[in-house]
Each structure stands twice: as C-alpha cells, then as structure tokens.
Simulated assay, not measured.
Amino acid sequence: MSAWTESDLTTIGDATELQATSRRKDGSLRNYVTIWGVRVGDDIFVRSAYGADNPWFRRAVTAGAGRVRAGGVERDVTFIRVGPDSSTHSDIDAAYHTKYDRYGPQIVGSVVGEHATEVTLRLDPHIS
C-alpha cells in the first residue's frame, strides 16, 4: 500500500516535471535534476531518458534513497527498481503517452517501450 497522500499523488502526478536527487554516503543530498514522472494508481514512477548509464539514474540506484519535489510537494523517497517483467510497464507507458505525447514522439520515445523497462524506478515515500 502506498504511503503517498492523495494530495501528494495528484500534485506530483499532475506536475509536468519533477526534480529528483539522491543521497551521498554521508547522507547529504546531491544536486537536483529535472526529470519526467508519472502517476499510475497509487504510485509515482520515473524513467531515465538516457538509459542506465545516465549519472542521476546510476546514483539513484546506488544510493537507493533521495528526495523529490514537484508542485510544492517535497518528500524523501526510496528508489525501487521495477523489474523488466513487471506487468506495470504497459500502464507506465500509457501514462507517459497521456501526459507527454504533446512533446512529440522522439522525446516521449526515450521513456516508453521495451528499452525503458530496465530504467524504471518507483518512488516510495518515507513514512515520517
């Protein structure tokens, strides 16, 4: 069950962009990067548009924890890799298409399809 509030899900899900950062080993936060994210049900997902070698993605996977902010919401999160065999990927693709198709197929194509399954992260909020 998601620990996101409905308000947070709506705000983050409706935001065109979100900013994400990972934690360093000493617990401090790295610089934020701007990325696209989508809401699917009670979850928020992000994907690396430039593959698994993208520095923010590598750092997020390695750290496992960080923070996101969008639309005035800021939350500490855990980055959870979504396996390529997850049935959720088609719903994530559909959410990206619905939200971002207006930017054109080349841009949206960087975060949808089979190649995007290996670079999908679910953002789980830390419960305070």
Rank of each mutant, 00 (worst) to 15 (best):
M1E: 06
A3D: 14
A3V: 09
A3P: 02
W4Y: 11
T5K: 01
T5P: 01
S7E: 14
S7G: 03
D8A: 14
T10R: 15
T11L: 07
G13W: 07
G13A: 06
D14S: 06
D14R: 09
A15T: 11
T16H: 13
E17N: 07
E17A: 00
L18T: 04
T21N: 04
S22V: 01
S22K: 02
R23T: 11
R24L: 12
K25R: 15
K25A: 15
D26Y: 11
G27T: 04
L29C: 03
R30K: 15
R30C: 09
R30S: 11
R30Q: 12
N31E: 14
N31S: 14
V33L: 08
T34R: 12
T34F: 01
I35W: 02
R39L: 08
D42Q: 11
D42N: 13
I44P: 08
V46D: 01
A49C: 01
A49I: 06
A49G: 15
Y50S: 07
G51E: 07
G51V: 11
A52W: 00
P55L: 13
W56T: 07
F57A: 13
R58K: 15
R59P: 00
T62K: 08
G64T: 02
G64H: 01
R67E: 15
V68C: 09
V68T: 05
R69K: 13
R69I: 04
A70W: 03
G72H: 01
G72R: 02
V73L: 09
E74N: 02
R75A: 10
D76G: 14
T78W: 08
T78E: 15
I80H: 11
R81W: 13
R81I: 11
V82W: 05
V82F: 02
P84E: 14
P84N: 13
D85Q: 10
S86L: 03
S87L: 14
S87E: 15
T88G: 01
H89V: 08
D91M: 07
D91H: 08
D91F: 10
A94F: 03
A94P: 02
A94N: 11
A95H: 00
Y96S: 05
H97R: 13
K99A: 07
Y100P: 04
D101S: 15
Y103P: 00
P105N: 12
Q106L: 10
I107G: 01
I107C: 03
I107W: 09
V108K: 02
G109D: 09
G109R: 10
V111S: 00
V112K: 02
H115C: 03
H115Y: 04
A116E: 09
T117A: 09
V119H: 00
L123Q: 07
H126C: 03
H126F: 08
I127M: 10
S128L: 06
